[in-house]
Amino acid sequence: MAAAASPAKIPGVATTAYLALAFLYIPILIVIIFSFNANSLITVWKGFTTDWYLKAFQNDDLRRATINSLVVAVSATVLSTLIALMAAIGMRGKVPRAVGQSSSFLMTLPLLIPEIVIAIATMSFFFIIGLDLGLGNVLIAHTVFCIPFAYSPIRARIETLQPSLFEAAADLYATPWQSFRRVTLPLMLPGITSGAMLAFITSLDDFIITQMVAPPGAMTLPVYIYSMVRKGITPEINAVSSILLVISIILVVSSYVINQRKAV
């Protein structure tokens, strides 16, 4: 493919691209930069400080919310990745067309339905069946929502495995279980890791579903941040938000790097 060959080069395209990229990142950078602003009037720069981070760590409610978020994220990640892995492998086997098609549809539906609708639907459902597991309610809702995000890299990875590898394993006396343990699983590991990371981020960052579903006392970090934003933006919010942003960025970049490495 011609790289920026003369006929393909359109003027203004490069500028637009860089401006758009700046547009995408400036708000993120602003939050991070101003979290170090020694001025409680957030948007006027006064000097560098890490005070807000210290204040954030000393905040009990914040700490509790953070722990809740982490507990839910880790559990939801484990469950959703496991379910997604089984589904991905199952889809490669012989399934009746109806089952296969409805599974694919169900897998993409959470990404298509507006989050607010999923939020109120889940909340109503928990209400009517009287589910009252506290943080467990949040965990269930997150698990469901995270499955498609875990599934995508796993599915992408499994598609790259040539079927002849599994035929070779069977030809070499491996039972289906041995074939799975020694060939499928090791080769799928990058996809599984990537899927788990994405599921983790999705759970950690989720707001609207958690807001609707979490009972009082089971607050997560984004819900806490929202309540603070409602009251008025304080610099501690910037500090906490920056931490969340940086965690997400690190995980996404790692996920990319893992997938890029052609370990095969």
Partner: peptide, 9 residues
């Protein structure tokens, strides 16, 4: 096998 199907890992 025609594609050799060697286990890459």
């Amino acid at each position: 096998f025609q594609s050799y199907a060697l286990f890459p890992h």
